[in-house]
Amino acid sequence: MYVTITPQKLGDNYTASVADFVAYLEKENEDKSVEDIEPFFNQHGDAISSKQVIHEIDGNTAKLKKNEPKFYSITLNPSQYELKKLQNHSEALKQYTREVMKSYAASFNREINGRPIHVDDIKYFAKIEHERSYKGTDKAIQENAPYHKKIVALKNEIQQIKSGRQIGDISEKQRQIKQLEREAPHKSNGQMITQGMAKEGSQSHIHIIVSRKDQSNRYSLSPGSKYKTSEVELNGKTVKRGFDRDAFYKNAETTFDRQFGYKRNYVETYQARKTFTKQPQQYYASIMGLPTNEKAIAFKMLGKAGLSTPLMNIPTNKVQLVMKAIKQLKRGVGKAIESGSIGI
C-alpha cells in the first residue's frame, strides 16, 4: 500500500478553488454510462456530485490565509498483489477508505471541546479510479525514451519530405520506425509503451480530498503539521498539537490486512520503505534474514518492479558484494517507489 498526503498547490498558476482538482478526478467518468460512473462519497454518503464537493470544500475555509492550503489530497494506492484479494473493487475500496479515515482522524494529537478528533469531525470526499496511465517517471517510459526520441525525429523528417522541404525515402523511414518500435524494451499488448498509455492489469486506487478545516469550519486540522505529536503551554493551558504520519501510514496497511485477510511481505511495508531510505544496509539485511519462502516472494516482488534478483545469493558477510547489492537495490527500489508499482 503506497499512501501519499499532498497539500493543495498554491501560487499564481493555481486557483484557490478545488474545482480544477475535482475536474481532474472526474476525467475517468467521461463517456461512461450512468451505471459505470464512479461518484464521490464520504463517511456516510454515496453518489455525491462534483458540484457538492466543490461547494463544501470551497466554503469551508474560514480564517485561512491566502498562502495556506485549503485542502489536502490523500491517495491510497494498493499494489496489484493487494488488489487480487478484493472481489468487488469499488465496494471493497469504499469500505476500506472509510476505515482508513477513522485512522486519519485518530492520528491527530488534537482535541475538540475536550475530546479526541473523530472521523465525523473530518470533512472529506473520496473517489475511486480504476485506470492509470504511464508517466515520465515510470521505468518503462525512461528506458523507452531513446527509441521514442528517434521515432519522433523520423516522423518529423517524414513530414518535411511530404511538405517538399526535404528529400528522402518515406518508406525507408517508416521501416526504421517499425524497427525501433520492435526493439524498444517495454511493450504492452505488443505496442511500444509511451507516455499517456493506459497501464495494464488492475489499477484501482483512491483519491481523497480533505478540507483543512473541520466540519464546523472552526478548527484547522493539518496533516502537514511540522509537529508530529506534542504538547505546548498556551495561555496557561496545555494544548495538544500535531499529526502522526507514521501511525497513519502503518494503520492504512494494518487496516487493509485485517479487512481483507492479506499477508503482507516485508518489502511491502511502510517500515521497510523507511528503513530503505535511512538505513539501506539494514533493509538489505532484513530481506536476507527472512524465511526462505518469504525472501523468495520479496525478491519476486522487487523483480517485477524492475530489480534483478541475483542478490538473493549474496552472503550478508561479503562486504563488497553487499554494498554492490545495496546500490542495485537503491536504483531498483527507488524506481519502484516513484512509479508506485509495488506497495512499499
Rank of each mutant, 00 (worst) to 15 (best):
S33W: 02
E172I: 03
G168V: 03
D169P: 02
S211G: 11
Y124V: 09
K127V: 07
R273Q: 05
V333L: 03
D244C: 14
G343A: 04
G289L: 10
L10H: 04
G289W: 05
K304H: 08
K178V: 08
D246G: 03
D20A: 13
V22R: 00
S230L: 01
S202N: 11
P116T: 14
K300N: 10
A47I: 04
L25K: 04
S107P: 05
L302W: 02
F260G: 13
Y124K: 02
R331H: 05
H130F: 15
Y249A: 01
E56L: 04
A62V: 14
E131L: 13
T254V: 15
G306K: 04
S222V: 10
D36P: 08
A285E: 15
R182L: 07
I206D: 06
H55N: 14
R212E: 14
E99I: 10
E68M: 10
L86H: 08
K250Q: 14
I57S: 05
A153T: 11
G332M: 05
A336T: 01
I177E: 09
Y104Q: 06
V22D: 05
T97P: 02
A272T: 08
I128G: 11
G261L: 13
M323R: 07
S220Y: 14
Q179P: 03
A336G: 04
P78K: 08
K127F: 07
R264D: 14
S171R: 12
Q80M: 08
I54K: 02
A145N: 09
R110F: 10
N42E: 08
S211T: 09
K123Q: 15
K70Q: 07
K162G: 00
F260A: 13
K94H: 06
Q8P: 05
I48E: 09
A325G: 03
A140M: 10
P69K: 03
T229P: 00
L307C: 05
T316Y: 12
I193G: 03
K32P: 06
S308F: 01
D120Q: 04
G340R: 00
D244A: 15
F260W: 13
N113R: 15
P146W: 05
P291S: 09
M312L: 10
T316D: 12
E253L: 06
E183D: 12
K173A: 06
I48R: 04
R218A: 09
F125K: 00
R175A: 15
R331S: 00
Y147P: 08
